[in-house]
Simulated scan of single mutants.
Amino acid sequence: MSVILCTAGYDHTIRFWEALSGICSRTIPHPDSQVNRLCISPDKRFLAAAGNHAVKLYDIKSSNPNPVLTFDGHTGNVTGVAFHCEGKWMVTSSEDGTVKIWDTRTGSVQRNYTHGVPVNDVVIHPNQGELVSCDRGGNVRIWDLSENKCSHQLIPEGEDVSVASVTVASDGTLLCAGNNAGNVYVWRMVQTSHLTTLLPVTKFTAHNTYITRVLLSPDVKHLATCSADHTARIWAVDPTSTLTSTPSQPPAPNYLLTPAPPHVLQSPHNNPNNPANTTNPPINMQALHAPAPAPVPETSAKIAEPTPFPLETTLMGHQRWVWDCAFSADSAYLVTACSDHYARLWELGSQSIIRQYNGHHRGAVCVALNDTALS
């Protein structure tokens, strides 16, 4: 399978799609709960599905609908999941207030880090030695795996708003976070010796309501934001202007860098409320240029405040909340998952819907896409 595309949500199913035809090629039942997040292993062998309390690991090439392994240890909804670049371990975040690292061979917990409040997302830094997580208390934390502790606690100045999503550039240069006020925060990540230094770059208003997902493209030229306002937006990443503020802008705000706790707290905090890019060459997706609906026009609404992340386009056509998104390996396409039951494949150059994936009976809230060529 050169292109693996799957979606899931509140109808308790995981669906695999043929990207070209839009046909659902396989459906896996997930009766225990809704599925909150999906992640495909770098070798394309396994799919991790995060639900309530547990993560189930499925064999992508097998027709067996049962999971090959279940990671059971959280006490609330699992909100984030990511694989180590070689698949040796997996990290998860949860509303129970913890971030856990799992051995993917045995399903056992290797490490447990505590936020103290529900955790909304977690990603792995490309160096594979750090984790970045965010929580409902408005914090972004960086965990140093070699030191086994929190090395940075980032608190957006003057705000105590839940941070819904974080994303790290594939080259490790940028960290972006989006919160429930519709704001995006950007930090420059500088690697010095064995220490990561973070420099605040900018804050800008991306949406006028909840941001549900932020995601940097594999080529680090675009930032996608998904929102409760029924849209996804694509922002240009300008590497020259993100280093400093432009003359027309006020100085970049001081996003407080709080010293990390001296040790890792181990006691979990239960709050069970309901709710890895690779560098391999991509499969050529130009064959997706099939007849498509008329291009969706860009919105006339503009973000008023100056920003080194100018708005490229607003992807309109979703009927409800847009929960998740995934870039193609060549950064030319974006798949979105929406509460209106649909997943959509967008060609970013033409801002048009190339395919619409119809089959879920309730909201589609997560998507995973891997169209890289394995070496």
Rank of each mutant, 00 (worst) to 15 (best):
S146C: 07
I303V: 13
P295V: 12
A276C: 12
L334V: 12
V122D: 00
C134N: 07
I234D: 08
V166G: 06
L223I: 08
H360N: 07
Q191P: 00
L288C: 05
P250I: 09
A224P: 03
S300L: 14
G178Y: 11
H74P: 09
C6R: 01
Q128W: 01
P247H: 04
N183L: 15
N273I: 14
T92S: 14
V322K: 00
I40D: 05
M189W: 04
V365A: 07
R213D: 11
S248V: 13
A260V: 03
R136S: 11
L195Y: 10
Q153M: 14
T313E: 02
Y357L: 13
A164V: 02
A49G: 08
T106N: 06
V35L: 04
C366D: 06
N274S: 11
L243Q: 12
S350C: 07
A368Q: 11
Q249G: 03
T212C: 11
A82H: 07
E18R: 07
G107C: 08
T70Q: 11
T205Q: 15
S108Y: 03
V190G: 00
V99C: 14
A206R: 05
G359A: 07
V91I: 12
T242V: 15
H115P: 00
G138H: 08
Y342K: 00
W235F: 15
K149V: 15
Y58E: 04
S25N: 06
A276K: 05
Y255P: 03
L348A: 08
L315E: 09
Y185Q: 10
H341Q: 14
S151D: 11
R344I: 07
V123Q: 11
T104N: 04
F327R: 01
E147V: 08
H318K: 04
T225M: 06
T278M: 08
H12K: 15
L311H: 10
N254H: 11
A373N: 13
V166Q: 06
H361Q: 15
S2H: 12
N112Y: 02
A232S: 15
G97L: 04
D135G: 14
T244M: 07
Q356R: 13
S133P: 10
L145P: 09
A260D: 07
V109P: 02
L311T: 10
A177S: 15
P251K: 11
V78A: 05
E86V: 05
H263E: 13
C6L: 04
T314S: 15
V220L: 01
N112G: 03
S93D: 08
T197P: 00
T7F: 01
V161D: 11
S41Y: 02
W321Y: 15
I234G: 06
L257G: 04
V3T: 15
T98R: 00
V220G: 00
W89M: 08
V3Y: 01
C6N: 03
D144Y: 05
T242F: 11
N66Y: 09
A48S: 14
D96K: 06
I60C: 06
V201I: 09
L288G: 13
A224E: 06
G116F: 08
L47Y: 00
N274M: 09
P218L: 08
H12C: 10
T372K: 02
C39F: 01
